[in-house]
Amino acid sequence: MKSFLSRRWRLLLAWTLPTACAVGCILSPLRGYGAVSRVVAQKIPLGSPLHISVVYTWSAILVIVVASVVGDVLLARAMKQVGDVGELRRRVGIFAVIGRTLGNPNFLLGVTAMAVAFFSLLFALSWGDVSLVAPAAASLTFIGNAVAAKIFLHERVDRRRWIAASLVAAGVALLAG
């Protein structure tokens, strides 16, 4: 029983802090754009014509979208592997659920992909305007997630879900702008 507990504590100590930091700094700016523009104090000097910065901005947006779609798909797959959290919690306890989640390779890869999305967001914001980057990245991520969930997670994305994803993507593009 003692080794049981100590293993759990080691898992908790090894993952609580990095996960807290990662989750705190990764997910917040992806959704709260006000915070990011503060974090990126310095603009990256390009000293090149306008069309170059347009290319840079859109490639950064593409990287954000791809990375957050990959992250979301991996996290969704990880949680499907872990199983229904509510049911599992009643059966084996909350700490076992947390341990199982944090020990899942897909979960760790998903968090890493989210970190990549965060850093490319920083780059995109230092090259392009918030009012372009934020809505473009957010709405394209919704569409990309619908496609990726159909292909990689084999979710049944029927007409109802396509319409929902498109409506939300359009709405987010209008709201975040």
Partner: peptide, 28 residues
């Protein structure tokens, strides 16, 4: 945001990604 992440993971454990994402976009 940590609470958000925990609830998001919980939701993903019993619902499709294409269900959770639009359903929680009411935050905007």
């Amino acid at each position: 945001l940590l609470a958000f992440f925990a609830t998001y993971m919980t939701a993903l454990s019993w619902a499709d990604l294409t269900y959770v994402l639009p359903a929680t976009s009411l935050g905007y």
